[in-house]
Amino acid sequence: MKMDIAFGQYCEGNSILHRLDPRAKLIISIIYIVVLFLAKNVFTFALLTLTTMALVILSGISLRVIAGGLKPILFIALFTAIINIFFFTGDTLLVDLKIVKIYLEGLFNAGLIVLRIVLLIVSTSMFLTYTTTPLALTDGMERLLSPLAKIGVPVHDFSMMMTIALRFIPTLIEETGKIMNAQKARGADFTSGGLIKRARAIIPIIIPLFVSAFRRAGDLATAMECRCYTGGAGRTRMNVLHAKWYDFAFVLAVTALGAAVVLMNIYLPGYTVTM
């Protein structure tokens, strides 16, 4: 079993979005999500669709990759759309099937809500998953949350745990493959039988995997101790993050976008979405 997983689906690249400080990207993502939920009418949605499209172009990531990333949410989007189409009551009746009535407003609402979900996924993946390595993300998060360490939140410990987990995912996957092969060589069958039989066949894989993971953890702890690791206190970092002008520019731009959306909600009423 040769699996080369790219967790978080990071796409190699050197666009401005790739180069943004991970801290800035985290902040921007949060603001962008809030802005998406503030959007109420057609005009604001049109604006946000444009900005999200601009992000996609900026990132240089192919549309096929992005479309692939949307697949998992297809069901949720469809489900929300159907609920909205069939159960929304408006003024303009389109189809009357006695039991269910479909209104124009329902269709309209469904469209905007699906659009919101799509924009949500595309924009956050533009800022985070596609353009930021999981390691940079952990790092950014540690530094953003570092003030919390003063009130006793173990920020460093959590980020160290994340870093080690990320480091060992490929190692453990490789090991799972080895164990599966070893069990297959002993006549184990993972592919036939019902659900329960298959679930049971997993046990001889899980147990050796756990045992070995614990042994690795013990070894790693010893090795870390030998390298003078004593926790977060007094530790420095080789790569220090420096926020550049474009990090601030991006945060400002997204904040301005939020302000624009709020203003448009107030001054351009009509075609409002309800959710």
Partner: peptide, 17 residues
């Protein structure tokens, strides 16, 4: 079992950090 980071140079830096 003795490499901590997922990037070579980050791991080499670990002890110095």
């Amino acid at each position: 079992n003795q490499i901590v980071a997922s990037v070579v140079e980050e791991d080499v830096a670990f002890g110095c950090e």
